[in-house]
Simulated scan of single mutants.
Amino acid sequence: MAGDDIRAVTALLIAALAAEGTSTIRGMYHLRRGYSGLPAKLASLGARLTIDQETP
């Protein structure tokens, strides 16, 4: 159920943006596959994101 994975990692990303401190999210390949432009859009709004490459 890839759709569930994409929504789950998106929810984790939003929660991480709201949290204080540093957050680490694994499984971002789901986000890149489904919402590939979202990290860049969030960064343009001021979000500080560092994305490391990972394999699925």
Rank of each mutant, 00 (worst) to 15 (best):
A19K: 12
V9H: 08
G3E: 11
T10C: 15
R32A: 13
G21D: 13
T24S: 08
A11E: 13
A40P: 00
V9N: 07
V9A: 06
A19M: 05
A2P: 08
A40S: 07
E54R: 11
R48F: 02
A40F: 01
P39D: 06
A11I: 08
L12E: 14
D52M: 01
T50N: 07
Y35R: 13
H30W: 12
L12Y: 08
G27L: 14
R33Q: 14
A16M: 13
G3L: 12
T24V: 15
L13E: 07
E54H: 02
L12H: 07
A8T: 10
A8M: 02
G34K: 04
R26P: 01
A2D: 14
T10Q: 13
I51S: 12
A40N: 07
A15E: 15
E54A: 12
K41C: 01
T22L: 06
Y35M: 10
R7G: 11
E54Y: 01
K41P: 00
G34A: 11
P56A: 10
E20A: 10
D52N: 09
R7I: 04
R33D: 07
A47G: 13
A15G: 04
T10W: 13
A40E: 07
A43Q: 05
G34H: 03
S44Q: 09
L38Y: 08
I14Q: 13
A11T: 10
R32H: 09
G27W: 06
A8I: 00
L31Y: 09
L31H: 06
S23T: 14
L31A: 02
L12M: 13
D52L: 06
Y29G: 03
L45R: 01
I25G: 06
T24D: 09
Y35I: 03
K41E: 04
A43Y: 00
A19L: 03
L17F: 09
R7T: 05
T24G: 03
H30F: 14
Y35A: 09
K41F: 08
A16Y: 15
A16N: 11
D4I: 05
S44C: 00
T55P: 09
I25N: 03
P56N: 04
T22G: 02
L17R: 13
V9C: 04
A2W: 09
A47T: 06
L31E: 03
L12V: 01
D4M: 04
I6T: 11
V9Q: 10
L38S: 01
L31W: 05
A47R: 04
P56G: 11
I25S: 07
T50Y: 11
Y35V: 07
D52R: 04
S36W: 02
L31C: 05
V9S: 03
R26I: 08
A40D: 10
D4T: 09
K41L: 06
P56C: 05
G21K: 14
G34S: 07
D52K: 03
L42Y: 03
L13H: 06
G3S: 12
A18D: 15
